[in-house]
Nucleic acid binder design. Structure first.
Lengths: 229, 229
DNA sequence: CGTTGGGTTGACTGATCTCAACCTCCGTGG
DNA sequence: CCACGGAGGTTGAGATCAGTCAACCCAACG
């Protein structure tokens, strides 16, 4: 990661957004920016936690390894998002890994400084609680889905979530460049199975392909797959 | 739920434990106790959130429904635990259900009061952030396990977690009375499959049965099931 | 050109779910 | 006291979903 002078942009960082005005200068003074190339790791499972990151630009995948060649993608962190918040608390070790899906810029704040900010800045802490509560809700819903929903539904769910988070291009394609492997890791299934499901969805006219990009054609059909078993 | 006069016990409630001394009387004044009979619901998915609960005694299962007859148990809340914290944040609707596994007592605090406490009491909020961070860690690990770990490993994991949380009796049995159905819902598999796996583990001398209760005989064998695929 | 990383496909296997039956315990009402 | 019924537990047979393995293809790139 290439280190840069910090540029504090209140529009694109959770910490600045939710911090009281007076703390902004201090935050800027304690921030470090990092430039990441595509594929570069921000941190990985087992690394010691020393601070917290915020994404300025680009797209970071947050995932948890299972095998050497299996993982589950937990979420994608885009501009403004917190990164590494799972390192907060008792445990001083990241339980997850994060790597850049495209060239990205993140900023870093030392954990001591972040925690002392939290102690002082009630609003920030309160927003953080809300943020965590949401993460937990999403996470637990996904737990249930992974346990009970068949792969086809999980793929449908993944596609809709991707469309929600990344929007669509003017030609209707989901606006993210994701390898099939990563899509599979996001849906929590194998490469080949996801591939077949994608084909199935195409032949049912629920989605369409343009190169590797995917467009949702029949949103209701996808939703239907998620609702029932 | 039978309503009672509140008895604030600093030993057994997350809020009191982490609150500044001065707020205790106010907390007590804003608490309501509820007695629950075995099987009784505290709240269910879709209910409006109006406050937050803390468990005084007993054991509450927190779960998320899938079918009419399928669910995933997310966790068990014992004495001191927070209950209904997933209702914090934007969403005014519980994403999960909670019901008593045995006769229990919970206390209830109005959400407005709880939030205003958070705004004032930095330490409580900070502890809440830590708590959420831990929940999220656990939850995301479980997500990955549900996605990639075979049932046998998930059952092993469930048993170890139960033993950790509930301890063992003097005869070595895991100190919780759980139906096979609930065990299955906790492991995220079907009743019959879990049953077969249990048998398998017994015949491998990894666990032993006494009535419906389970004792871990060979902890390392269980751990081994969790480590690798 | 060869190599490499995706992508695509088929055959096969096996884990896990479903369904259905039966059993046992226990509380309830006649 | 006994018959009944329901809830939970136990077991087997079979279907099927989804993972594994292996092959092939294609485009990019040194």
């Amino acid at each position: 990661m290439k280190k840069n002078k910090a540029i504090c942009d209140a529009q694109t960082c959770f910490m600045c957004q939710n911090c009281i005005e007076e703390w902004r200068p201090a935050i800027c003074a304690n921030k470090t920016n990092f430039k990441l190339k595509k594929g570069e790791l921000v941190f990985k499972e087992g690394d010691a936690v020393t601070g917290i990151y915020f994404v300025y630009s680009g797209n970071i995948k947050v995932y948890k390894k299972w095998d050497a060649d299996k993982e589950l993608i937990l979420r994608f962190a885009k501009g403004g998002a917190i990164l590494g918040h799972r390192g907060i608390g008792d445990d001083l070790i990241y339980p997850i890994s994060a790597s850049a899906l495209e060239d990205s810029v993140v900023c870093y704040v030392d954990m001591k400084f972040f925690e002392s900010t939290l102690k002082v800045n009630t609003e920030l802490t309160f927003q953080l609680v809300n943020f965590f509560a949401n993460e937990l809700r999403v996470s637990e819903r996904r737990m249930r889905d992974l346990a009970h929903m068949p792969v086809k539904g999980r793929v449908a769910d993944a596609l809709l979530k991707l469309q929600n988070q990344f929007g669509i291009t003017d030609t209707g394609l989901i606006n993210i460049n994701l390898s099939r492997q990563d899509l599979a890791s996001y849906a929590g299934a194998t490469y080949e199975t996801v591939f077949r499901v994608i084909n199935e969805l195409v032949s049912e006219n629920t989605i369409s392909l343009t190169g590797k990009s995917i467009a949702v054609v029949n949103q209701e059909a996808l939703t239907a797959l998620i609702e029932s078993a």
